[in-house]
Design a protein around this nucleic acid. Structure first.
Lengths: 187, 187
DNA sequence: CCTCCACTACACTGATCTGTGAAGCCCGAC
DNA sequence: GTCGGGCTTCACAGATCAGTGTAGTGGAGG
């Protein structure tokens, strides 16, 4: 899994360009040129654009999960742990996620269900829902899976609304709503 | 605003193809061929692909607003009116919106802020939030604009989660959460 | 009859797309 | 000193991209 220096640069450049401009809008020639690498190297390392796209999503997924897990682990109070992903979202956006959720955006562009990136997208959402469910169960919520789905909906909506509606207050609003739902479920 | 027969067909075909496969993935040649029209006609009627994309979004926006307004007007109870867009979402999805929110998807592909479609997308989200705010105020909610933003987040999240996470229960979960938030705000 | 217009036919531009083939260079490891 | 691998160079394939120019057809309305 260790990438060669060239492959590392390609993946880094591709990640920025895919996220910022969309997948179809960025050609492999651009990625290669911007990485200071020939197109030959790109294909020798990744095999195809589709595979590179999947690797882009995998790499972003890894970073995102680490970010969320760190935010959860930093809390000890069960309720605060369950709501930590909403706090994590605020840092994440502040660090440059102004174009919304990369996975939602990729889903919009990858219409073929068998595209290698689709599985990564699907897994990312399932993972977050499962994390919510685990933490909610730990917080003594009765229907943890059901509430987890509601928190996932709020979470997705927060990032999307923040970007698409250009509404910075969406993140805080989602976090507040999530807290109210959790409190109601524990009462 | 009345379209010629050819233009009508082009717009109908483009709407399906753009929504189902994405904007960049569908070429004008395909749209023209599928409409049983020459590319010349397409350009004579719409001027450019960007303009056609904007018209696609405008047309979908119109249908969507009419659908939501009908759902709201069908209710008399103030709370049910405010929550009507969530019910409307279920019909909408059942009628074939399996690829998520067309506006969110388009946002993912249109990276240029000056693209003519971007204004349509932005307006659609602002409109729905304003509708929520109006109905919530009518239902006697104190901070109607604030709660309207939360309902918008739930609404966006519902459609996205339904499609991206392949989770049909997301719609109902969002509606339930919305009702709980509204009830809490009226207590 | 004549004019307008929606539309066809079709050839073409120039750019860009993903992906490949063949040759060779440099450097570290064995 | 030889071998492998990370990488370059560059030419090229074949398709598809958005968009245009020119000429002509057929029908509806004045």
């Amino acid at each position: 899994m260790t990438l060669t220096p060239g492959a590392r640069r390609i993946l880094d450049v591709a990640s920025v360009l895919f996220y910022e401009h969309g997948i179809h809008a960025v050609g492999v020639d651009t990625i290669a040129a911007e990485s200071g690498v020939t197109k030959r190297t790109l294909y020798d390392r990744f095999g195809s654009k589709d595979a590179l796209v999947a690797d882009y999503l995998r790499a972003r997924d890894e970073r995102w999960r680490a970010h969320v897990v760190a935010a959860v682990e930093a809390e000890s109070d069960p309720v605060r742990r369950a709501l930590a992903p909403f706090a994590a979202l605020e840092d994440w956006v502040a660090e440059g996620a102004g174009r919304g959720c990369a996975f939602v955006n990729a889903f919009a562009e990858l219409d073929r269900p068998d595209h290698p990136g689709r599985a990564v997208i699907h897994d990312e959402k399932r993972w977050l829902r499962a994390l919510f469910a685990t933490e909610l169960a730990g917080a003594g919520v009765a229907d943890a899976p059901g509430l987890a789905l509601q928190l996932l909906v709020l979470h997705e909506g927060a990032l999307v609304t923040h970007a698409v509606a250009a509404e910075p207050a969406a993140l805080r609003a989602a976090g507040d709503a999530a807290r109210l739902l959790v409190d109601a479920a524990r009462a």
